[in-house]
Design a protein around this nucleic acid. Structure first.
Lengths: 169, 169
DNA sequence: CCTTAACTTCACAAATTTCTGAAAGAAGCG
DNA sequence: CGCTTCTTTCAGAAATTTGTGAAGTTAAGG
């Protein structure tokens, strides 16, 4: 007598256990890749939600964490453009949303980070000397990042074309 | 005979302070991006070295850390293919090296990690149902990673061509 | 074989990070 | 205006991570 399928009352009830299993598993992989735990879990929960949006209270309940933890996680995720915040009109509630389009870049290209790597490398080349062996190594590393920076932008463009073709829009 | 080399004060003598400044600055940016501190510092030191190789003792001294810390950092870096280890023939010394070619991919594409993301997403699609809104969102995310996985390989190929053109070889 | 140099592993102290409850801060609604 | 509902900030307890000294392991060189 499991509760499976119960609560068909309002909308299509999803199996909360299956959702939770996915959320925790995917979040664990994000953590492995260096993301903090709470942001990872919040993000995964949004990804697995029906509408791609959840309120603070829903997140708090679903993930069994305090409102404070939700607040901190969302602040981080918004900062790196992986979610955006929306005010529900006529309510103090806020909704958080994954924009299927935006977050890919945040997660993969990390433009801002690469920019700072480039800055550090430029300084290094200048101070060690462009004509020294180590200076040359740094210069080549810098060239690599400048190259992929350009190329990643083109790649994202190709993805959009491909997606439109395959998924319509 | 130790090759202190500090005699040449003009021109290409390496200024240890300038080196250290670069090492700490670049390492800090790697830390910001999620890498641990010691691996970051060791990696930056190798990048900034003249030959692209350093021994354990040299790293220990230059970075002011214990041999144990070097050992741990190198183990990690080797695991993710950012440095390789070489035995100095006829000595118990080991040299660690950055391969200007290999480490780019390790740092940027993170194949293994993306593979595990894909696995988690596939499971999610299966268990939530490919015909549900959330299932569709996960499927599209999965498609994105499969797409860039392919594309990144091509990008690295283009980089090699470009580099050869620009830097000779 | 035995010595010794070089690297690795391990247990633990210290530093850092993470998450919470409590209180304060906004903003709609009567 | 205050009441009420939701979110954010903050101090601190708990958990985790980090780097070290010391002991252990491996292998060169006599």
């Amino acid at each position: 007598m499991t509760e499976s399928g119960s609560g068909t009352e309002s909308g299509s009830a999803r199996d909360p256990e299956a959702v939770s299993r996915f959320v925790e598993r995917f979040a664990a992989q994000l953590v492995e890749a260096g993301m903090q735990r709470m942001p990872s879990r919040v993000f995964a929960a949004l990804l697995a939600s029906d509408t791609g949006t959840l309120t603070s209270a829903e997140l708090s309940e679903q993930l069994q964490i305090s409102p404070a933890a939700v607040s901190g996680a969302v602040r981080y995720l918004a900062q790196v453009h992986m979610v955006s915040r929306e005010r529900e009109p006529g309510s103090r509630r806020e909704r958080y949303r994954v924009h299927s389009d935006q977050w890919y870049e945040a997660l993969t290209s990390r433009e801002a980070i690469i920019k700072r790597w480039e800055d550090a490398l430029r300084e290094g080349v200048a101070s060690l000397g462009a004509d020294t062996p180590s200076g040359r190594r740094l210069a080549q590393t810098l060239a690599f990042f400048e190259f992929i920076e350009q190329d990643v932008a083109l790649m994202m463009e190709r993805w959009r074309v491909y997606r439109e073709e395959r998924f319509g829009d």
